[in-house]
Simulated scan of single mutants.
Amino acid sequence: MNIDLHGKTALVTGSTQGIGFAIALGLAEAGAKVVINGRKAPAVDAAVAKLQQAVSGAQVQGLTADVGSAEGCRQAIAHLPEVDILVNNVGVYGPQDFFDTPDDEWERFFQVNVMSGVRLSRAYLPGMAQKGWGRVLFISSESALNIPADMIHYGFTKTSNLSVSRGLAKRMAGTGVTVNAILPGPTLSEGLQDMLKDEQAASGESLEKTAAAFVMKNRPTSIIQRAASMEEVANMVVYIASPQASATTGAALRVDGGVVDSLA
């Protein structure tokens, strides 16, 4: 399968590192013009340079805006009035007991993880529909279905991603625009690497083996019995963003290694 995204502009929110950067890289390799987004200009500039170095001839630009706020979304839309592919990737996470999680933390998670995608989708979907082609993807999580007891506020936002994605797919019926959600499981991102660095140092094992042990302890239903790579998640996103995925919409597509113990 040859995925060709030449002539398409893709905005990936929260893409200066981690899964977001891997997605931006994959889209650039497929020929898309990629817009890397982050809150801080130095991080955005560094990511743009890194992607340009990795993909010869890549069309890439930076967009510094905090899309976790209404004002940041307005700035992003003013700078970039239309896109063909929108990947709502930006997100925050972190464990905190339900009884210790105050209202403002619930609100912060909701604004970043949910409302960023709501606001940007509301801005960009009409233009996609007018052109008769577009792709919107929400990066959810297996935690949307497998709500973690120590991150209920996070799981809530990821379930919300599924609701918004499914509803928007129905709203865009017949327009040529698809809307889908991607559900990664434990992924060997910088965040997981940082979380495991002390454990890895103590064990003397490789990062991959340390991550695999972490997965089997915390997500014992994993079928692949390891953490996914960021590229494996990005591969799913690139396919769903492609013309070849035109019959896939309103779906919750798992890249969770089989963590969610369900047939559907």
Rank of each mutant, 00 (worst) to 15 (best):
N2T: 13
N2G: 11
D4F: 05
D4G: 06
D4H: 08
H6K: 15
G7T: 09
K8S: 08
K8T: 01
T9Q: 07
T9W: 04
T9H: 13
V12E: 01
I19W: 10
G20S: 12
A22F: 09
L25T: 04
G26I: 01
G31L: 09
G31T: 07
V34Q: 03
I36H: 02
G38N: 10
V44S: 08
A47T: 03
A49D: 12
A49Y: 10
L51W: 01
V55I: 06
V55S: 07
A58E: 02
Q59T: 15
V60Q: 08
V60C: 07
V60E: 08
Q61M: 14
Q61W: 04
G62D: 00
A65G: 10
V67W: 08
G68D: 05
G68M: 03
S69K: 14
C73T: 12
R74K: 15
R74N: 13
Q75N: 14
Q75G: 15
A78L: 13
H79Y: 15
L80D: 11
V83L: 10
D84R: 02
I85E: 03
V90E: 09
V92P: 06
P95A: 14
Q96P: 04
P102F: 05
F110R: 10
N113D: 12
N113R: 00
V114I: 15
V118A: 12
Y124W: 09
L125Y: 06
G127L: 09
G127H: 11
K131S: 11
W133T: 00
L137S: 00
S141V: 11
S141D: 11
E142T: 13
E142P: 08
S143C: 15
A144F: 06
L145S: 12
L145W: 02
D150H: 14
M151G: 05
I152R: 07
H153P: 01
K158I: 04
T159M: 13
T159E: 13
S160Y: 02
N161T: 10
N161Q: 12
S163Y: 13
S165T: 10
S165Q: 02
R166N: 12
L168G: 08
M172W: 12
A173M: 02
G174D: 08
G174M: 01
G176T: 04
G176D: 08
V177P: 06
T178H: 03
V179I: 00
A181L: 09
L183H: 01
P184M: 10
G185K: 00
S189P: 07
S189N: 10
E190M: 02
Q193Y: 06
D194T: 13
M195C: 01
E199D: 12
A201Y: 04
A201V: 01
G204H: 06
A211L: 03
A212S: 14
A213V: 07
A213W: 02
V215Y: 03
M216A: 07
R219K: 13
T221L: 06
I223W: 06
I224G: 00
A227M: 05
S229P: 09
S229F: 09
M230F: 01
M230D: 05
E231V: 03
V233A: 00
V233M: 11
A234R: 05
A234K: 02
N235M: 03
V238N: 02
Y239I: 03
A241N: 08
A241R: 05
S242R: 01
S242A: 00
P243M: 07
P243D: 11
A251P: 11
A252T: 14
A252D: 10
R254M: 13
V255C: 01
V259D: 01
V260T: 15
V260F: 06
V260N: 01
V260S: 11
S262P: 10
L263C: 13
A264I: 15
A264Y: 15
